[in-house]
Design a protein around this nucleic acid. Sequence first.
DNA 1: TATCTAGGTGATACTGTGTCTCATATGGAT
DNA 2: ATCCATATGAGACACAGTATCACCTAGATA
Lengths: 150, 150
Amino acid sequence: MSTYLDTGRGANRLVASLDAAGHRLTGPRLAVAELVAAREGHFTAAELLVDADRAQPGIGRATVFRTLDLFTSLGFVERVDLPGGDHAYVACDPVHHHHAICTSCGRSTDVDDVGLGNVLAAIGRRSGFSVTAHRLEIFGLCSACSAERP
Amino acid sequence: MSTYLDTGRGANRLVASLDAAGHRLTGPRLAVAELVAAREGHFTAAELLVDADRAQPGIGRATVFRTLDLFTSLGFVERVDLPGGDHAYVACDPVHHHHAICTSCGRSTDVDDVGLGNVLAAIGRRSGFSVTAHRLEIFGLCSACSAERP
DNA sequence: TATCTAGGTGATACTGTGTCTCATATGGAT
DNA sequence: ATCCATATGAGACACAGTATCACCTAGATA
């Protein structure tokens, strides 16, 4: 779970990032940042829209999507595709990593590349494919949930 | 690239699969199967709809989607998510594997699990996560395209 | 071969996500 | 305090995918 979008200490990072990329720090952006940070695990655009409307009535639908896009491009949020094919978003650290998504509670854990690089290199060697990007999503039960239902 | 949906020899497999699962072999299904097999690499639903309308005018939009769903559940087709976030489909073998998608020509190559199992096991061990499913998509240049533009 | 029926189809309307446009508002540089 | 590029909100739009429902047909049965 990320802390990069938390209000307080974490917000500094967001502000710095927006600033560095020449984006303004606006009310709606802060509001969306707080809503995203408040969410445990992944959420759909629809859920966030409901949140946004409750937290700050009058915030535009387009603005929420735009902000989500912006945060995605800054790496604070990532789009994931659930096993069912639905789209969702998760707050995360702006460094390369992957998500392990709990199918029970919905929370996501960031995991690093533990050896995946080698796997991709092996694939490239075998197939002549020159790998430039990849996406790995992992689904299962987080430690808390698998303890609960063994 | 798969041969499972090819007409001729490959169609046997499709027929057998439909039959085994208690599905009928109908005209529209064969037509869609041929269109999918004729496509090199991934394609969007929209593209297939255009194809379908050209190949067999009168074929219903819903039928194409239904057939795509059916083939997906049989494993002959898989949904992939392009880097841009768009959905696409690819014809493929009905065994567990991953796709390496060429960002230049769009063709996809099936790759097997070369060591990914170990990676997932390592992730599980580290994080206490009990992995039940995963999705790996690889993007880059296929051998032909990377030879062309070095 | 004729009959029967569960499963499949096409037409159409609908839902939901995400985008576009454009007039208005505002952050933050000066 | 002023100014203007950037951001916003409203609402129309585009598109993917689903639901419904009357009709049709593959293929099992007799």
